[in-house]
Design a protein around this nucleic acid. Structure first.
Lengths: 253, 253
DNA sequence: GAAGTTATCGTCATGTTGACAATAAAGGTT
DNA sequence: AACCTTTATTGTCAACATGACGATAACTTC
């Protein structure tokens, strides 16, 4: 259905409302060997040709935002089923983001276990994981306002870990306390005392559930395998409801 | 500037990107005689004629989102200068929100001291404060998906009070601890112990600053007047930076 | 002046944190 | 097999924060 007349919410000028191209961008974060990484694509065309950018693309007619974000991510990363937790981060623009005109973008945040990115053909935009640290310190330049979006995403991710059980979104189905701690350390950029973290993680009601199984083959004493407790698991409609209370304290910056 | 061709971010179909009407809506909250209130307008036309809705309107060309939200709010509430703290809440749509077609809306949240709403002429949409409680319990019906947006806004407001100094955004420049406590009680919908709240509010470094002045004329012992500490005041670019740590604990639901 | 009201300061038991000792259970080394 | 290294897990303890309330202080109202 196309809207041909607007008689409501009429701007003072009494003209038809402006229409904007709307894109979704995704800040996909994961932890690879104890480092926080972000998924970026290399732009093959102007503007910002050769620069790195967040994966994303236009919202299509009849699509919702999360839907569009999931679709774009799946397309550009070359995966079928989206792993991890996807949520909306915030909207940017439409003014002054793109040299070619006003574009509104709705940024999203994906917290996911490490997954392999498909190496597409050479004519497609190449997606790959990049250490967040190296993106922030200027080793790489991001296109558009994607640096700011990344910064906002990081701040969101950091605080998510404090109050929600979403740290586990970076892990697989089952994980050890040490693996979960590595997530917190990578996202927060700090070191945490293993003993205190263990106490807090296992002692918080409604957070973790012991599987009864253990790791084997690694160095050191085998570790117990945990999974998210049912109350902490995301359910359709109520993503990640349960809250860590009191929060897992992040050391003061 | 009008965009006539898109050669980047090209959807698979290789057609020009869809364009959407984009609106901003504002959930304006305030505390009036110990009750949380929300600013709503009465719709004068279809759809949802006669129903209540959040103030809002179309984003204009060359406008940014916060700008548009501030403008719409000022227009519909009939105020010149926006009081309080305005921030983006999140985006909704574009699918299935409006019976007439896809519209993307970016919801915003305003936390403000009680301010008088201009009673515009009878041909304009009438804006007024409504107790949030009565909106939630079904006494009033909201248009579009505005009930959901209001619910999300409330959740955001509640958690904002825990970790940020934004409770003070509901108060004027100077306020007493009891006034601040009334804000927390109204937003959280709980009663707080005055003595413990006083201890926490005045004992949190970087939150409040004693003005040295006192109230007079009210019932009971005069109260000291406080203002936000400089570290907790919003500055252009860094809105409400300082964080309450540890947070002001909200009683478990 | 007495009573009522609100603000503010204290007290105390309980719970949480941060620092760190000690033990457990594996693999690797000699 | 005895030892060493590594990592996991269980405790201990002081410092601090919270929640529940007692006790005053300083006004207004009657």
């Amino acid at each position: 259905m196309t809207i041909t007349s607007y008689t409501w919410y009429m701007p003072a000028s009494h003209t038809a409302p402006e229409r904007f191209p709307v894109t979704v961008d995704v800040v996909a974060l994961t932890v690879r060997n104890s480092q926080l990484n972000v998924l970026l694509i290399t732009r093959l065309i102007e503007p910002f040709k050769g620069k790195l950018a967040l994966p994303g693309g236009f919202v299509l007619a009849g699509e919702d935002l999360l839907e569009a974000a999931g679709r774009e991510l799946a397309e550009e990363a070359g995966v079928e089923h989206l792993p991890g937790h996807l949520e909306q981060l915030g909207s940017y623009g439409p003014k002054g983001r793109d040299p070619r005109g006003d574009v509104l973008t709705v940024a999203h945040l994906l917290l996911a276990p490490d997954f392999p990115v498909l190496s597409a053909g050479s004519d497609a935009e190449q997606a790959a994981w990049y250490p967040v640290r190296e993106v922030l310190d200027g080793t790489y330049q991001l296109a558009f306002d994607h640096s700011r979006i990344l910064a906002d995403a990081l701040e969101r991710a950091k605080s998510k870990l404090e109050y929600s059980p979403l740290g586990a979104a970076f892990c697989g189905e089952e994980f050890t306390i040490a693996q979960l701690r590595a997530v917190y350390e990578a996202v927060w950029g700090t070191r945490l005392d293993p003993r205190n973290f263990h106490r807090k993680a296992t002692g918080t009601p409604g957070f973790l559930e012991d599987t009864g199984r253990m790791t084997a083959g690694d160095a050191g004493r085998p570790a117990a395998l945990f999974r998210l407790a049912p109350e902490a698991r995301p359910t359709p409609g109520h993503p990640a409801r349960a809250v860590l209370n009191p929060p897992l304290m992040r050391p003061r910056d």
